[in-house]
């Protein structure tokens, strides 16, 4: 300790203080301030550039997502349209089929009705003819009866057989 105190030199201390104060002031003015300002500005610039790049990337992503969404929508729309068209087609086909069926049934019905009426008419005519025939037979029988009784009976039998055959 004694040696330390002895070694202490006021002159050197004084010069050191002066030099250090001057050096700090000079360097602050001419070096540290511009250097720190430049470094800070550069770092801020880098940070801003990075942020901008990140923002651009996000925007790009958004854009891509948008595109994807639009594409998706278009696809969905197309699908919907196709589906609709298919449905319309099926409906038309079904409708047409149903109508055709109805029409056919109607025609069949009509045909049946016609056939029925025809049949009735034919029956009526047949009945008329049978009646006419019967009347004619009866007339003939009556005419024949008047001449020969035996022949009359055989004639009736013969006629009846004919009727049966008919």
């Amino acid at each position: 300790m004694d040696k330390l105190v002895n070694d202490f030199s006021l002159g050197l201390f004084f010069w050191q203080a002066v030099i250090l104060v001057v050096l700090i002031l000079l360097l602050v003015k001419f070096a540290w301030r511009p250097i720190m300002t430049s470094i800070t500005a550069r770092e801020a610039g880098i940070a801003a550039a990075l942020a901008a790049a990140e923002a651009a990337r996000k925007e790009m992503q958004n854009l891509q997502a948008d595109n994807q969404r639009i594409l998706q929508e278009a696809r969905a729309e197309r699908d919907a349209m196709l589906k609709e068209a298919r449905e319309i087609k099926e409906k038309m086909v079904a409708d047409a089929r149903a109508e055709a069926q109805v029409q056919g049934e109607k025609m069949i019905e009509q045909a049946k009705a016609t056939i029925d009426s025809e049949k009735k008419a034919a029956m009526a005519e047949l009945k008329n003819q049978v009646t006419t025939l019967s009347v004619e037979i009866a007339e003939k029988i009556l005419k024949t009866q008047l001449s020969d009784a035996a022949a009359q009976a055989s004639l009736v039998d013969k006629m009846l057989d004919d009727v049966k055959l008919n």
């Binding site: 006021l10 002159g11 004084f14 010069w15 050191q16 001057v22 050096l23 000079l26 001419f30 070096a31």
Partner: peptide
């Protein structure tokens, strides 16, 4: 006596000042 000499150390410090500057 009060000694404010420009000693070897003072010269060295001045040199360092110039160098740093």
């Amino acid at each position: 006596p009060l000694d404010f000499s420009i000693t070897k150390n003072v010269i060295t410090m001045l040199f360092v000042c110039v160098l740093m500057f």
